[in-house]
């Protein structure tokens, strides 16, 4: 594999995969610790109706309306979950299950009802994404990285996910102390004057933004897997939050790179002709990493907690 083949065909999908994985894994750390891990699952389901509604309103498949639609749907879902939980006094898991399945069903129905045969919009695409198609046609080799003309032809998804990653990392860096306190001891954080409710909502919204941006590039499977698997595996490696975030970034990058390479080249090594789904493979690799961490990680057991029946 030389540069003239690797740079246009594999470099950008690989980068986008890595950036998306890290952007999801960062807020995922806090979601896992706060026992809100399934928010990512819920968001990635409700993105579908958001995108379909955005398409119905604008009539075009364009990035920004869809991102707005998806983000709007995520916010609607979070509000609905909270409303149903409070009004009906239903446990949060069930409230979540009611909302995201219904919104997903509505999305599928809308999709079936509208004529989307002319455009590339379907449920399968929403699930697996199209990481492999995000190629950089203007590149001819490694030299293109310094060529402004070729750089202008980079897929827009790359810039978008990069901006999202910077935003997510910035949020976590800015609110690090408040997030840490409110995650581990919400009562104490409140006595210090930290608005824990607001912070919790902000975290969910940041997660939603990361999910939507990543979803746009790589599909919802990676989003759920990256929200949960790298942070969960990192949780088995260390007892400090700093260490956990660091490990989760390493695991996210590792899953993205290994997953992409195995999906793209693994079948060729085995003698098959075509590649398999990169998104699915990245999720699978992150699961393998989690399995290894859960079996051999130094901090894998609950220390001091009573055994649950």
């Amino acid at each position: 594999m030389n540069g003239s083949e690797f740079v246009p065909l594999s470099l950008t999908p690989l980068l986008i995969g890595v950036l998306a994985a890290v952007a999801c894994a960062l807020p995922g750390n806090f979601l896992v610790l706060r026992r809100q891990a399934l928010i990512g699952d819920a968001i990635s389901h409700v993105v579908l109706p958001g995108i379909v509604v955005a398409f119905l309103l604008t009539g075009v498949i364009a990035a920004w309306p869809m991102m707005l639609g998806a983000a709007g749907a995520a916010v609607v879902a979070v509000v609905l979950i909270e409303a149903i939980r409070r009004l009906g006094r239903i446990e949060p898991g069930a409230a979540m299950g009611v909302v995201f399945t219904t919104m997903f069903a509505a999305g599928v129905l809308l999709l079936e009802q509208t004529d989307t045969s002319t455009v590339h919009l379907d449920v399968e695409h929403a699930l697996y994404g199209n990481l492999e198609s995000l190629i950089w046609l203007d590149a001819t080799g490694w030299a293109s990285l310094l060529d402004p003309v070729a750089l202008a032809g980079l897929p827009v998804e790359l810039a978008r996910i990069l901006v999202t990653l910077i935003g997510v990392a910035g949020f976590i860096w800015l609110f690090w102390r408040a997030l840490k306190l409110s995650t581990f001891d919400a009562g104490f954080a409140r006595t210090l004057g930290i608005r824990t409710n607001l912070l919790g909502l902000a975290l969910v919204i940041v997660a939603a933004v990361a999910a939507v941006a990543a979803f746009d590039a790589v599909g919802s499977i990676i989003v759920i897997a990256m929200f949960i698997c790298p942070p969960a595996a990192a949780r088995m490696m260390t007892n400090t939050l700093e260490g956990q975030v660091g490990w989760s970034v390493i695991f996210a990058i590792l899953s993205a790179v290994l997953g992409y390479v195995l999906a793209g080249y693994g079948p060729l090594w085995l003698g098959a002709r075509d590649a398999v789904s990169a998104a699915g493979m990245i999720a699978t690799i992150s699961g393998l990493i989690l399995a290894l961490a859960a079996r051999f990680g130094p901090c894998r057991t609950r220390s001091g907690a009573p055994v649950q029946v």
């Binding site: 949960i228 969960a232 088995m236 859960a294 907690a305």
Partner: peptide, 12 residues
């Protein structure tokens, strides 16, 4: 057998 809460295990 691990310290993961049930929701994280479900998601994984």
């Amino acid at each position: 057998n691990t310290r993961l809460a049930e929701d994280a295990a479900i998601g994984a």
